[in-house]
Every structure is written in structure tokens, then in C-alpha cells.
Design a protein around this nucleic acid. Structure first.
Lengths: 236, 236
DNA sequence: CTGCGACTTGTTGCATGGTACAGAAATTAT
DNA sequence: ATAATTTCTGTACCATGCAACAAGTCGCAG
């Protein structure tokens, strides 16, 4: 199910992968209709593998199948986005703690390189390059936890968030870029110092401020009335 | 996908639910073969909904589909079990922290009742009743976190662990029962006191000692060489 | 007796056709 | 004109058939 090196993958796997990248990459709008027959024609296959791919994406939380009606790209509302970020905070914090406890793992060296490269990117004002490095930073910590189940659930989470779309938005706020990099430094230092408790705390704070920066900068797409109550339920 | 109250559920949902309870309930051995045609005959339906149900269970991590070979009940090895417990610790700890931050929620009252009932069960020596209450204790804290995404991932995790099978084993160790109840008390007190940080720490310690008690008491199934070892190839 | 190759059997993978249902559109009654 | 009803269309749901492949079985040569 995860990244198979083999080219010998089933048709449904190809369809599922193709749709997943299209959804997480933002190529398909939230709420877009995904008809079995249409997709089957697009991919040049029959409806069965398309159907099975959609079923898998539903279990992953990427699409919603309304019986006898149609399949649509899931659109997480504000509440769900907050919950997803809360989970992100939990998992990345825990990953930082676990990584610190493991000592000298390959990911730690890569993390040092990443932070150094990010410093250079900040100095050069290379926002795109920095965004890429931010992505790698978080992935390295998850991988560095050494817990594959954690990595699996984290991937599911990020897919639901379509997070890659948001990174640039999050960094668009003035001053956020250098702030983010400083936080990365603190996290990496605490991990290198094998101080798991502090690493977890700092990582959580980093994710939290990142969420705040994102939500502030974001024009929220789902202001349609009648669905859910977008009023602030609790502002922590 | 979460708990639908509707009786109007599709055939594939019935099959998926039926198989899930059979697997998590221990009715189906790890590594057991699940033939599409056999299951289709058992449930009195065609192969298609069975196939889709199996696909969903694979995404949930409950079964493993080997292409052109067959579908088998997943058998987590020792490493995976440790990883799953680590995740359990992370999520339940975070849930305790979140619940403490929420203040007076309905689940808190239920938690108080649960602990009181558990005290009575311990005094009465009712192990079965206590095991049931332990289950409810953990479910209450997850629900009390107020984060549905967390609850969703937690459910997936517990399904993979087939945890309900283990509870009795875990409590079989002498002295573990009273110990467990004392830990529950501390957790509930910290939540009631709105001390999220301590609640999280104590909850993690509780889960950790619970895991230790279980692993010590467990006869691990995969240790006999030469028996039914279906040579599961480790994926990445 | 041993090793190697063709064959057989069992299994999933994919394609296709019919069915039931939801929702919109058109029609009719009020 | 409006509301209720009927018709219609699009969709997912399920059943079934065929084909491709994996793995074990058997036979045969060495």
C-alpha cells in the first residue's frame, strides 16, 4: 500500500495514487464531483478499479461517497481543520521526543543539514526553497521517531489537510519566516541535546504558532451558511 | 464512515463490520485466509461487496491482501505491537491533557462514576466487570478529548491491536488489578483538577505500565520456529 | 533419490450489464 | 402563482463472467 518500488502495480493502485496526488496537490477543488464513469474514461480503465480506488480514498478520509448520489472531494470545515492541527501538534511533538530519545540516528544528521540549508535560504530570501525545507524538516522528525505506525497515521493526517498547499500561505505573513526558522533551530537543538521533554514542548509550540500563522493568513473557503456553525466554539 | 446509526447500510458495510468484529474479537486467527468466494457464500452475497469490504479492512490495517494470492488476517509482530502501544500512549496521554483543558464535560462525570464503579468491582473481585470498566475508562478519556480525529485514529489503532483480547491477559498478573485502579484514580483526579500536564504524564505512565504488564504476561505467538510462518515480508 | 520443468488448481484482477435509489425537472392540481 | 406529484436522468450498488497470475503437484530425466 505504501510506496512500492515496483512498476508492477495494479490498476487500482495507479488510479488511487493519481487521484491522491491530484487532490492533495490542489488540482481538484474541494467538493468536486468524481464520477466513476468519467474517471474510468479518463484513466482508460473500467469502473471497477476506479471504484475500489475511491473506496480506499474514502477510508483515508480524502473523499466522501454519498450512496446513490456521487463521490466528492472532502472539504474539511474549520472545526475539522483545527482538530487536524491539534493532531499534528500531538504527533510531531511525540516524534520529536522519541527522536531525542534515540540518540544518533541518520535523520539527526540530515536535520542538522536541513537547518543549515534553511538558514541559507532565509538569508537568500528564497521562500520557495525554504518552504521545501520546512516540509523536509517535519518529515525528518517523523521519520526520526523510528515509529512506522506514527509515520503512517501522520501521512493520513497530512493528506486530509492537503498541507502542502498551505505552507506557502503560512509563510506569507511578514516576519513569520525568520520566526519559523528560529523555532526549527530550538527544536533541532533540543533533539540533539537528547532533551526529549523540552523537544516535545518546543515542537508543539512551533506547530501551534504555525497553525496560528496559517489560520490568520487564510481566506477561509467554506463560508456557506446552513452547513455547520462556523462560530468560534472556544478560543483556547 | 464513523458510527452510522442508520439501518439502511449497504451490503459491503455489513460485510466489513461483520469481518471487523470477527477479527478484533479473536474469532478469526491471525494469518487466517479470507477467500472472496468463501466469504461471499457465507454472507450470501456476491464477490463484489466482499471484495470492497476487504479493501477497506486492508486500508484500516486489519488484513493484508497479497495480489493474486489471497487475503489474510494481519498478524502484527513484536515490533509492530510495541509501536502500536507507543501510539496508544501518545494518543491517550494527549486525550487526557485535552480533556483536562476542557473543564466540565459530560465525560468527566461519567469518568467519576466509572472510577467509583471500578472501586466496587475491585473490592468484589469482579475481574470481568473491572475489565469492562477499564475499557470504558479509556474510551471516556478519548471521547472527552473532544477531538473526533483523535478518536478516529485511536479506533483504527485499537482495531489493529485487537486490544479487547488482551485486557484480561493484562489483568491476570497478581497485584496488577489494584495497581491499575490506583493509576486510574490519579489520572481522573488530575483531569478533574484541570492539570493537563500532569494528567498527560500520569496517563502515559499508566499506559506504559499496562503495556509492560501485558507483554510480561503474554505468550508471544510467533516464537515457535517451523510452524505456520507465512513468511511475511517486511514492507519498508 | 534428487532436481527441474510442465501442468493443474485456486485465487484475485478487471470488465461489463442490470438494478435501485436520490435528486432534479417537468407536469398537474389547487 | 404555488404546491404537490409524477417523470426522468444520473449515480452508485451489486452480480457475474473471463482472464491473468501464483503456487503447489506431479511427472520425468538425471
Amino acid at each position: 500500500m505504501q510506496g512500492k518500488r515496483e512498476e508492477r502495480q495494479s490498476i487500482q493502485a495507479k488510479v488511487a495514487d493519481g487521484l491522491r496526488t491530484k487532490i492533495t496537490g490542489g488540482e481538484l477543488e474541494s467538493g468536486a464531483s468524481l464520477s466513476e464513469v468519467t474517471l474510468a474514461e479518463e484513466f482508460g480503465v473500467s469502473r471497477t478499479p476506479v471504484r475500489e480506488a475511491l473506496k480506499q480514498l474514502e477510508t483515508e478520509g480524502l473523499v466522501e461517497i454519498r450512496p446513490r448520489v456521487g463521490t466528492f472531494v472532502s472539504a474539511p470545515n474549520r472545526l475539522e481543520i483545527n482538530e487536524l492541527f491539534e493532531m499534528k501538534e500531538i504527533l510531531e511533538g511525540a516524534a520529536a521526543r522519541l527522536m531525542a530519545a534515540r540518540g544518533e540516528v541518520p535523520e539527526l544528521a540530515a536535520l542538522r543539514e536541513n537547518v543549515a540549508a534553511a538558514d541559507a535560504a532565509v538569508l537568500a530570501g528564497d521562500v520557495d526553497g525554504y518552504a521545501e525545507l520546512v516540509d523536509e524538516f517535519h518529515r525528518l522528525i517523523i521519520a526520526g521517531s523510528g515509529n512506522q505506525k506514527l509515520a503512517f497515521h501522520y501521512r493520513m493526517l497530512m493528506n486530509q489537510l492537503a498541507f502542502s498547499r498551505f505552507v506557502h500561505t503560512s509563510l506569507s505573513r511578514p516576519g513569520r519566516l525568520g520566526e519559523s526558522e528560529a523555532e526549527h533551530h530550538r527544536v533541532a537543538d533540543m533533539i540533539a541535546a537528547k532533551d526529549g521533554g523540552t523537544a516535545e514542548r518546543v515542537m508543539r509550540e512551533h506547530v501551534s504558532s504555525s497553525r496560528q500563522a496559517l489560520l490568520d493568513a487564510m481566506i477561509f473557503p467554506g463560508e456557506q451558511p446552513g452547513t455547520t456553525a462556523p462560530q468560534r466554539k472556544r478560543e483556547q
